Simulated scan of single mutants.
Amino acid sequence: MKKMLFLVTLLAMALTVAACGAAEENTSNAAVETSAADAKELKLIASNWVFDQEEYKVAVGEPIHFSIENAEGLHAFKIKDLGIEVDQSSPKQFTINEPGTYEIKCSIQCGSGHRDMISTLVVE
């Protein structure tokens, strides 16, 4: 009986963790994944609790090759409103079709300053 209770508890915990870590899917066309040969490079350089710039600017409709370099610590980033997630091993390319200001957040728990590791993407 104790083993069964333990297994049920373990299964419930695993399902909870899986649900919390589920990827959010971008259902709008604000950002579309592309593979254009002439994409503009946008590399974020991350150190502990900061990106190298407070603000990055790109043009509407221009293919952007997003990547991240970890100068210190282990980081990745997410632009939730555009459905963009990038880590060091998986750069991605998107064309952003809607102008606006979008929040860039570190998506790996990187220490005590993690929640303040925020930058901005301005699409004009």
Score class of each variant (00 low, 15 high):
1 M>W: 09
5 L>I: 15
6 F>L: 14
8 V>N: 06
10 L>N: 00
10 L>I: 07
11 L>T: 15
12 A>T: 13
14 A>E: 02
16 T>M: 12
17 V>E: 06
23 A>E: 14
25 E>C: 07
26 N>T: 04
26 N>A: 14
27 T>G: 11
28 S>R: 01
30 A>H: 01
31 A>T: 00
32 V>K: 12
33 E>S: 14
38 D>H: 05
38 D>A: 11
40 K>C: 03
45 I>R: 11
45 I>L: 06
45 I>W: 01
46 A>K: 07
46 A>D: 00
46 A>P: 01
48 N>M: 11
54 E>M: 09
55 E>S: 15
57 K>L: 01
57 K>P: 01
58 V>G: 06
58 V>P: 01
59 A>R: 10
60 V>L: 09
62 E>H: 05
65 H>W: 11
66 F>W: 08
70 N>H: 04
72 E>M: 09
72 E>R: 01
74 L>P: 02
76 A>C: 05
77 F>G: 02
80 K>P: 00
86 V>H: 05
88 Q>H: 03
89 S>I: 03
92 K>L: 07
92 K>G: 04
92 K>T: 08
92 K>S: 10
99 P>L: 07
100 G>T: 06
102 Y>W: 05
105 K>I: 11
105 K>P: 08
106 C>Q: 07
106 C>P: 07
107 S>M: 02
111 G>Y: 00
111 G>T: 03
112 S>L: 11
112 S>M: 13
116 D>F: 09
116 D>G: 12
118 I>T: 13
118 I>C: 08
124 E>K: 06
